[in-house]
Every structure is written in structure tokens, then in C-alpha cells.
Design a protein around this nucleic acid. Structure first.
Length: 802
RNA sequence: GCCGCGGUGGCGGAAUUGGUAGACGCGUAGGUCUCAAAAACCUAUGGUGCAAAACAUCGUGUGGGUUCGAUUCCCACCCGCGGCACCA
């Protein structure tokens, strides 16, 4: 008997499958499933066990659905542009295309070793001109629709990466990539108008089979709030200030506050306060937004001007403070310190009046002096000191205020979104050039479609200086002519955010080599949308939001027939180190999948990754956990290579087998891989030496999606036709999954006292009679008045009655 | 602070239209085989009481509640993880 030698058989079948193009899909037959992993950034570090978990999950699914007769699109590609490769290039002087290419080779080798059934004929890389030509095309589609625009704005600037960043890429005030503190800069940049889609991005979440937490993440990020914008007149000025609020307690408004960047700050500052205001503004400028947010300490300065509170008739002072953020609402607020904690803190600090207009359930109507007395939005109480509102419920009073202000023409109802437009330009080299030209006479011009791609040049010093590296490329800037006037023009030298590259790649997989279109319309209709998308939850407000936006734009333009890209979405849980802590080089707790494969073979590693626990849960890697799966495979190997089969399996085994098929079919479809694998092991434990050959074949088919190599080898050993992965998933007979007997638990007052086996046809009367005739039960219940609760097939509970 | 997810043996985990808690695996202990070790196989394995079995009893973060019966449902709280965070 041969020993199980994973390395040998895995190499053998890998070569064979490759030669036969076993997983290549050329056209659609029957129903389709598009099963997709979030494509990786090919880093020098290679694949890690976290990647492998997700990829194994989708691979099992893909193999399962293929066996069930679906045509499965299961491609892989490379999200290759981006800062890490470029930063590495800056450090070492090696060109990013070189390091990227090397990493792609490594990744491919590792994925193939794992036995993933990707259709490599569909491979794509976002850094290839054949791909980014269409990223540029996409930019122009948005530009023509007015959805890509150039504007001067306060933007996030990473001083270390020396580029601007999107809001979504600033995490806790730090650069998502290098963790430097991000600062604010006024710059002219390219934006995508994602805010125009805010409402649809919010509404359509309902249609999606996504984890709830991910949907909520997007809902919060979009941040819809309904409120009122109130217009204030300024004493002695013809300017007006608009303040947005969702909770107008206007009889209690005792001051206004403008954000330091508000356009009226200079205009309304009086001569006498100018010096103080200027000093405050320059002080604020020294601090980054994140620093401002972190310290809750209120600062501010009086402008010298007053606004009119329409309902109290009082003049209220206008202040400037950095606790008001320019891009939130209108960048100006009405201070209602009695009923908003931030306003309260501000009023306390600067000795502003704190009127009370609500009385809470405690009946306290005294002057508000401590934070506990502040009755905020969402709390309950009754209106007071508010004219005709007095006595009304708090929330009703707020509603009434809104209506009153609208009626009087002092305000209008508005819907506000937290979402801001997507800043897509980057002052970096390793990305897709933005296909725009600038002419001094004619302004911005788009590059003609026939001139795409605008190729990324090679004669570039990629050291970041804050200016785009492409500015200095001869190759890139040679002979640029304005399409309008024929005069000299220059190219836009910024490149696009890599999230633009990844916002549409799943569409390209439908038709990755098309040179005429971003993808053939018919093929898009056939394959998209993605049926099952698997990847990390960290992309909730990045890739997953951007992709939905881009899909909707292309839908509106008639390029695609679906308006949501990912029907179902799942996130594999993070795999922690054996010490239960997130893996990191500095902790030294990183598990390298290659080491595990050389120890046990890819089949074992695949199975261990899925056996550890529920797919979506975070779970620690166990250094000995792989042993169990390896033992299991060896056991299976021994049974099959000995051909230790009986002539005919007993009926008991046949029933177990049908139950197993049923469970596997259900569990795999629900991504419950851990319990599916447990069921396979249980079956082997229970069927030792009692399998006949046809049952043995069925068992191998069930194991095949998880362990493609060993099952192919053993399938051949027992004479199955090549390839096991082209066979049909076994059906099960519902009748045979049912038991003719069942075990009933017998409880007395809810406590288990005995069990007994009964026919499943047993009547209640028979079952109860039998239970009461058990000697032990008899002893326990004699001389006690009881009643019986009977749950067929489950339990008999004997309850004492008074 | 707000939102979301979770808390079950020594460890990873299983079981929810409420019905035998601990499947499956790891680890551990004992045994078989071996000169020996590894591998493989067999047995045991939630705690406590008992020499042991039988048995009893406790047991799914804590405290209450609903129910014949609660890991599962309800209320309050504690702890851990993730996200958002002066959003007006």
C-alpha cells in the first residue's frame, strides 16, 4: 500500500488540470454563478492565511456549483497600482512594475498550489494599459456627465505619502496606508460626484443580501439627516447666515457659531474684533482637523456682530469656533445651550446665556447650570418658555417649530448627507493617468477616446515631492496640443486613486480581453451581477461603496443592465495568530501558508482553514489544528487505497449517506463549511469497514470541493472516470434521510431521567405508556400526581401537579 | 459617547420556529504495536461528590423574569471585539 504523499499527488494533478484547462469557461451553458473574491494587491510578502481562508471558501462554492450543473465564472486578478509598490520603489529604486510583476508570479504560484480553480484565461491586472485604458474611459464617462469635476477645496493631505486622500482613506485622522497624521490643505483637485447618488446608494441597500453590519456601515457613512435650514439676518449688514439643524429649539437659541472656514467670517467681523478673530483663525490653522476633533475643549472668538432671533426678538452674538465643522450642514449653527451638550459647553466657557425651553420628567425648571440638566434631542419632556408651544411634548414642539419657521419664510426643510464627493486625483506615479489636458486659452479638455490609453511613462523619478512625478516626464509631456485651438497644452499629471481601478474590475472579468469596449454588452448581461462576493469588511465605505456608485453611473448611461454589482456579500473573519492576537511581523505571530502546505499538503490546509470555525468569525490559528485534518485525510487514503469495501453497505450506512448528502448540500450553500467538514468526519467514523464501492464514490464526490487533489487521486484509484471535478453532485432521497425509530428523552419536571427508543409511528398513548413502564421512572413518580407533556420525536416531560 | 457583533469544557467550536448542552477536531491520560521513538489504532476525557461504577448534583458572562421545559425568548447589568465619533 502506498503512503499518502500530498506533495507528489498534488503536483501531478495540478499539472494535469492545467494542461486540460479543466477550469476554463468559454461560454455560458444553463444557469450561471459568478463567484468572486476581492482581488488582492500583489505585495512582496506573498499570500497570507487570511487570503487563503476566503479564497478556499469561494473555491469550495465554485466547485460545488459546477458539480450542480451551473456554469461558474470564478476569475482572479490583481489590484496592482498603488502606494505600497511605489513607496517600495522610492526606497529601493526598483521600478514598481518590476516588483509588482514579481509579486504576481509569487501569488499565482501560491494560488495554484492551493488548488484554487480559477479560470486563469480571465486574469487581469489594473496596471496594464489594456486595463487602465478603460479606467480612463470610465473617467471620461463621468466627466461628460458632469460627475467628474475639478474644484478647489479643503482636502486631506498626507505629508508622508505627499498626496491628497479621499475621506474614506483617512482613518482616525491618519493616512490609511502609512498612518501619518493627515493635514488639511486648500487645493484644486478632481472629484467624482458620488453625493449625487447618496439617496439611491442608501435606498438600494434594501435589495442586497449583505451582512447587516456592512449595510449599517454604509448607512452611517452616507449619513442622511432631515432638518431645517434657518436664515438669520445680521444686525447692520445685508448678509444673512444659514444654520442647519435637525432639532430646532429656537426659543432657546442664544448665539450663532460659524466654522473658522465659513465664507462670512471676515465680512461680519467688526473693526474692533478683527485682531482677535485673525489671531484665532491662524491659531486654528496650525491644528489639523483630527487634532481639533480629538480635544473636546471648546475654543472660540466673538465677531462683534449680532443676528436676530426671530421668535424671541433678541439680538444674539455671532461667534467663530472650530467645534463647528465647515463641511457639516451649512458650516454654521444656532447655539441652543440648554438643549445641546456642545452648545452648553461653549456657552459655559464664554459666559453666554443658557435659556431653558424644555422641562424634563423630573420637573426641574431651575436655571440650567450643570450638564445633567441639559435635555438633548431624543430625551422626553415638555416645552416651556416657548410662547405658543408651551406644554407641548418635546418632539411635537420641535415638529411645530419646523412648520412655523417654514410658514413664516424663515427656514426651509432640507435633507443633509454626511457623504462627501470622492476625491480621485493623486500626486503619485504608480496609477492610471487622468486623461485630461489643460490649455491656457481653452481650459480643461478631455483626451479623445481614440488617444486612449494615456500611457504611464517610464522616464520618471518617482520620489514624491508633492508635485506629481509625471510633471517632469519628457515622454509624457511631449507635443501636447489642445484639441480645441491647436495651441500648446499640457497633460494632467495626477494619477487616479486606485479605488477607481477596483471600482469596475468585476465587470471586466466578463470579457477581459476586449479591445473595443470595456466589456461586451451581451457578456455583461450574461455574467453580471456577481452572485457571491467574498472579501474583507474593511472595504465597507471604500471599495464596496465606490463600486456601487460606478455601477449606478454605468447603469444610468445604459452600459449595463444591473444597478447593483454584488447581489450577495460575505466577509471571512480575520485569522489571528496562535496567541489570539492579530498577526503582525513585529509580534512574530505570522503563519505562512507555504510552510503549512509543505507540512501537510494543500488539501489539509484548505480544510483546516474552513474547519477552524464559522466562516465569518474572527478566530485564532492553532498550530496543532491541522493535524486533525491531516489524520482524517490519511484515514480516507488508507480506506480507498486498500480498496477496503464491502459488497453491499448495510441499510444503516445507506441512510447515513443520504443524510450526509442532504447536510452537505445545505451547509455548503450556506457557507457553513465547518459543520459540513465535521459531518464528513463523523460519517467516516461511523461507517468504518462498511462502505460499498458506490457509497465510497459518493463520499469522494462530497469531499471533492474541499480536497480536490486527494479525491482526484482516489477517484482514479477506484476506477472513476476523469475528472472527479467534472462529475455531478450526488442527489439524495428524502425518504432515506428519515429514521424509522427515534430516541425520546424522558424528563421529570424538566430534568432528564431516562431515554428510550421508539418507532417513529408510535402514538402518544403508546409512548407515554412505555415511558411510565420504565422501572426507574416508575419508582420516581409513584404516589405522585402527574401530567404528561409529549413532544413527538423529542421528549416526554412528566410534570408533578399540586 | 453612539451603533453593530459576541461571551458555551484545558483550547477551536456544535446545538436556536424553546425539547437529551458539549457534535467534530485539538490537547491530555492510559493502552496496543515497537529494542525505542514517531506514526497508526483502541479507550477515557465539563466540574464536584464516590475507591469505582451506578447514581446524585452543579453547569452555556452576572442577576432577575416568562415557561412543563431556556445556550435559545424578555428585562437589567458586566466583560471582550469591530465600526463611527463635536454630524448640529
Amino acid at each position: 500500500m502506498k503512503e499518502y504523499a500530498p506533495a507528489t499527488i498534488e503536483e501531478k494533478w495540478r499539472t494535469r488540470w492545467k494542461k486540460d484547462h479543466l477550469y476554463t469557461v468559454s461560454h455560458l451553458k444553463g444557469d450561471k454563478k459568478y463567484i468572486l473574491d476581492m482581488f488582492p494587491y500583489p505585495s512582496g510578502a506573498g499570500l497570507h492565511v487570511g487570503h487563503v481562508e476566503g479564497y478556499t471558501g469561494t473555491d469550495v462554492l465554485s466547485r460545488f456549483y459546477r458539480m450542480r450543473g451551473f456554469t461558474v465564472l470564478h476569475p482572479m486578478g490583481w489590484d496592482a497600482f498603488g502606494l505600497p509598490a511605489e513607496n517600495y520603489a522610492v526606497k529601493t529604486g526598483i521600478h514598481p512594475s518590476e516588483t509588482t510583476q514579481k509579486a504576481i508570479v509569487t501569488f499565482t504560484k501560491q494560488m495554484q498550489a492551493m488548488g484554487f480553480s480559477y479560470d486563469w484565461s480571465k486574469e487581469l491586472g489594473t496596471h496594464t494599459p489594456a486595463y487602465y485604458r478603460w479606467t480612463q474611459w470610465l473617467f471620461l464617462i463621468l466627466y461628460k456627465k458632469g460627475l467628474a469635476y475639478r474644484a478647489k477645496a479643503q482636502v486631506n493631505w498626507c505629508p508622508s505619502c505627499k498626496t491628497v486622500l479621499a475621506n474614506e482613506q483617512v482613518v482616525n485622522g491618519e493616512c490609511e496606508r502609512c498612518h501619518s497624521l493627515v493635514i488639511q490643505k486648500d487645493m484644486e483637485q478632481w472629484f467624482f460626484r458620488i453625493t449625487a447618488y447618496a439617496e439611491r446608494l442608501l435606498q438600494d441597500l434594501e435589495k442586497l443580501d449583505w451582512p447587516n453590519s456592512t449595510k449599517l456601515g454604509q448607512i452611517h457613512w452616507i449619513g442622511k439627516s432631515e432638518g431645517i435650514t434657518i436664515t438669520y439676518t445680521i444686525d447692520g449688514s445685508d448678509q444673512t447666515i444659514e444654520c442647519f439643524t435637525t432639532w430646532p429649539t429656537n426659543w432657546g437659541a442664544s448665539f450663532l457659531v460659524l466654522a473658522p472656514e465659513h465664507h462670512l467670517v471676515q465680512k461680519i467681523t467688526t473693526q474692533s474684533e478683527k485682531k482677535a478673530v485673525d489671531a484665532y483663525l491662524s491659531e486654528v490653522q496650525m491644528r489639523s482637523e483630527s487634532q481639533r476633533i480629538k480635544s473636546r475643549e471648546k475654543t472660540g472668538v466673538f465677531t462683534g456682530s449680532y443676528a436676530l432671533n426671530q421668535v424671541t426678538g433678541k439680538k444674539i452674538p455671532i461667534w467663530v469656533s472650530d467645534f463647528v465643522i465647515a463641511h457639516v450642514g451649512t458650516g454654521a449653527i444656532q447655539g441652543c445651550p440648554g438643549h445641546d451638550m456642545r452648545d452648553f459647553e461653549f456657552a459655559k466657557k464664554f459666559n453666554l446665556p443658557i435659556p431653558r425651553v424644555v422641562v424634563g420628567e423630573d420637573g426641574d425648571t431651575s436655571e440650567i447650570e450643570s450638564p445633567e440638566q441639559v435635555l438633548e434631542k431624543g430625551q422626553t419632556g415638555k416645552m416651556m418658555n416657548s410662547d405658543f408651544l408651551d406644554g407641548m411634548e418635546y418632539s411635537a414642539g420641535i415638529q411645530k417649530t419646523k412648520e412655523y419657521f417654514v410658514e413664516k419664510g424663515w427656514g426651509k426643510l432640507v435633507v443633509n448627507y454626511k457623504l462627501r464627493d470622492w476625491l480621485v486625483s493623486r500626486q503619485r506615479y504608480w496609477g492610471a493617468p487622468i486623461p485630461m489636458l489643460f490649455c491656457d486659452k481653452c481650459g480643461w479638455q478631455s483626451v479623445a477616446d481614440s488617444d486612449l490609453p494615456v500611457k504611464l511613462p517610464n522616464d520618471v523619478d518617482f520620489k514624491p515631492t508633492g508635485e506629481s512625478p509625471l510633471v517632469h516626464s519628457q515622454e509624457f509631456n511631449k507635443g501636447i496640443i489642445c484639441p480645441q485651438c491647436g495651441g500648446k497644452a499640457r497633460r494632467e499629471a495626477d494619477t487616479m486613486d486606485t479605488f477607481v481601478d477596483s471600482s469596475w474590475y468585476y465587470m471586466r472579468f466578463a470579457d477581459p480581453n476586449n479591445a473595443e469596449h470595456f466589456a461586451d454588452k451581451e457578456k455583461l448581461r450574461q455574467w453580471l451581477p456577481v452572485d457571491m462576493y467574498v472579501g474583507g469588511a474593511e472595504h465597507t465605505v471604500l471599495h464596496l461603496l465606490y463600486s456601487r456608485f460606478i455601477t449606478k453611473v454605468l447603469y444610468d448611461e445604459g452600459y449595463v443592465t444591473f444597478d447593483e454589482p454584488f447581489v450577495s456579500l460575505r466577509h471571512p473573519g480575520t485569522i489571528l495568530g496562535p496567541d489570539g492576537v492579530r498577526m503582525s511581523k513585529s509580534r512574530g505571530n505570522v503563519i505562512n501558508p507555504d510552510d503549512e502546505v509543505s507540512k501537510f499538503g494543500a488539501d489539509t490546509v484548505r480544510m483546516y482553514e474552513l474547519f477552524m470555525g464559522p466562516f465569518k468569525d474572527m478566530k485564532p490559528w492553532s498550530t496543532s489544528g491541522g493535524q486533525g485534518l491531516y489524520r482524517f485525510l490519511k484515514k480516507v487514503w488508507n480506506i480507498y487505497s486498500n480498496q477496503a469495501f464491502v459488497k453491499k453497505s448495510p441499510e444503516r450506512i445507506e441512510k447515513l449517506l443520504h443524510k450526509l448528502i442532504q447536510k452537505m448540500t445545505k451547509d455548503i450553500a450556506a457557507l457553513k463549511f465547518n459543520t459540513a467538514l465535521a459531518a464528513l468526519m463523523e460519517f467516516v467514523n461511523n461507517s468504518a469497514n462498511q462502505l460499498d464501492k458506490s457509497s465510497a464514490q459518493i463520499f469522494l464526490l462530497l469531499l471533492a470541493p474541499f480536497a480536490p487533489y486527494i479525491t482526484e487521486e482516489l477517484w482514479e484509484t477506484i476506477g472513476g472516470p476523469y475528472s472527479i471535478h467534472s462529475q455531478s453532485w450526488p442527489p439524495f432521497d428524502e425518504e432515506k434521510t428519515k429514521n424509522s425509530t427515534s430516541v425520546l428523552a424522558i424528563q421529570i419536571n424538566g430534568k432528564l431521567r431516562a431515554t428510550m427508543q421508539v418507532e417513529s409511528t408510535v402514538t402518544e398513548e403508546e409512548a407515554c405508556h412505555k415511558a411510565l413502564s420504565i422501572e426507574k421512572i416508575q419508582k420516581l413518580v409513584q404516589n405522585i400526581k402527574t401530567r404528561l407533556i409529549y413532544v413527538p420525536g423529542k421528549v416526554i416531560n412528566i410534570v408533578t401537579v399540586e
